[in-house]
Design a protein around this nucleic acid. Structure first.
Lengths: 203, 203
DNA sequence: CGTTCATGTTGACGCCGTCCACACTAAATT
DNA sequence: AATTTAGTGTGGACGGCGTCAACATGAACG
C-alpha cells in the first residue's frame, strides 16, 4: 500500500501523513472535541508522545489540517480566475460553486476553518491565505462590475451579499444540523439554482 | 444585587445561574475549548465538583446555554409571526432581520448552536426547537407565496435560498474570522440592504 | 567505522471530567 | 419543637489528556 514503509517497526516512516489522515477520519466519525493525540497514537500504534515530533501541539495538528483545506480552496479558486475563456461573471459563478463543492467534499476541513477555537491558534499564514481568497473574490467582483454586471451597486455590498449567500449555502449543504431541517442535503442542482439568483445577467 | 443570597457561605444560593453567566463570559473571552468546569468553579469560588450538582456534565452546561439561545430566537420569531399588522412577506423580513440581530447580540449562543460538538450531545428538545423554528420559517414563506410573492418558485427553493442568505449574513456579522475580511463588521444598514435583494416585491 | 540528527519511547507533571462518600443546611414532616 | 429528608457544597480518588524532558534507535553522511 505505502511504498515508503520501512521494515523496522521503530521508525514509522510516514507518521505525519498518517496522523493527518487518521485525524480527519476520527473527526468525521466523532467530532473535533473527541480527537486526542494519545488516542490517535494508540490507533496508529505508536507511543503516546510520538505525534509531538511532528506537531508541537494538538492545535498545530488541527491548524495543519485546516491549512490543507484552505490550500485546496485557494488553489481551485485561482485556477478558475486564471482561465481566460470565462467572463468575470462566469468566474464568480465558478468560485461560488467551487466553494460549496469544496465544503461538501471536505466537511472536516470546512468545519475546522470555521471553528473559532482552531482559527484562534492558527498561524498568521493561514489567516493570510483566507484573506487572499477574500481579496481574489472581491477583485473578481469589481472586474465583473466593470463589465457591466450590477455596476450600480457598491462592490462592498455585492461582496457582502455574495459571501453570505455562498457561506450560507456551504453551511446548509455540509453541516449535519441542517440535514433534518431540509430532510436531506440539498442537491447540487438546487445549490446552483439558489446561487443563480445572485448572478442574474440583468442589472 | 441578588436578593436570594444567603448569609452562610456553604450554600451559594444561585450557583446554577452564576455558572451560566460566568461560562458565557469565559467563552466570549477565550473560546469554548478553554472552558472547564473546574476553572469555572475556581472563578466563582466553590469546590471543583460543585458544578456537577447543577449540570451532570460539561456538555450539559453547554447544551443549557444553547437552549437559552434557541429559546430567545424562537420566542422572537413567534412574536413576529404572531403580529397581525404585517403581511407574511413583512414577517419574513422581520424574521431574517431578527435572526441576524440575535446572532450579533448573542455571539456565544449563536456559536454554540452552530457547534457540532455541542449539538451532538444536545437533548432531543433542543433539536426539536430548531426544527420548530425552521418549520415556522418555511410555513411563513409558503403563506407569503400564497399572497403572490415569488409564487412561481418552489417553496423549498425559496426556503433554501433564504435560509442560506440569513445564516450566511449572521455568520459574516458575528464571526470574528470575517472581521478582517470585511475590515470591521457590516453595519445593520448593510445587512438590511443585503437581505432586501431576497425580499423584492416583484416576482 | 563513527557521528549526527531526525524520530520514536518512557516516565513524569499538572489539569481535566467524573464518581463517590461525606458535610451542611433548609424545608417538610411528625 | 424535634426529627427526617432532600438538595446542595466538599474533598479525595481515578483515569485520560497535553506537554515536557531524558533517553533509545537507526538512517544518512562523513
Amino acid at each position: 500500500m505505502n511504498g515508503k514503509r520501512k521494515s523496522s517497526t521503530y521508525h514509522h516512516g510516514d507518521l505525519r501523513e498518517e496522523l493527518i489522515k487518521e485525524a480527519i477520519a476520527t473527526i468525521e466519525r466523532t467530532g473535533v472535541e473527541a480527537l486526542s493525540l494519545r488516542g490517535l497514537a494508540r490507533e496508529i500504534g505508536v507511543s503516546h508522545s510520538a505525534p509531538m515530533r511532528h506537531f508541537p501541539s494538538r492545535s498545530a495538528l488541527l491548524s495543519a489540517i485546516a491549512q490543507h483545506g484552505v490550500d485546496a480552496l485557494l488553489g481551485s479558486a485561482s485556477k478558475h480566475v486564471g482561465r481566460s475563456d470565462l467572463t468575470n461573471l462566469e468566474k464568480l459563478r465558478e468560485m461560488a460553486k467551487g466553494y460549496v463543492t469544496w465544503a461538501t467534499l471536505n466537511p472536516v476541513h470546512h468545519m475546522l476553518v470555521r471553528n473559532q477555537d482552531v482559527m484562534r491558534h492558527a498561524d498568521e499564514s493561514l489567516r493570510d491565505q483566507l484573506n487572499a481568497y477574500a481579496r481574489l473574490h472581491e477583485q473578481t467582483i469589481a472586474k465583473a462590475q466593470a463589465e457591466g454586471w450590477r455596476s450600480d451597486e457598491p462592490t462592498r455590498a455585492v461582496f457582502l451579499q455574495l459571501t453570505a449567500q455562498t457561506a450560507g449555502l456551504a453551511l446548509v449543504a455540509s453541516d449535519p444540523i441542517y440535514e433534518t431541517v431540509f430532510q436531506g442535503r440539498p442537491s447540487s442542482q438546487e445549490i446552483t439554482s439558489a446561487l443563480s439568483a445572485c448572478f442574474a445577467e440583468v442589472s
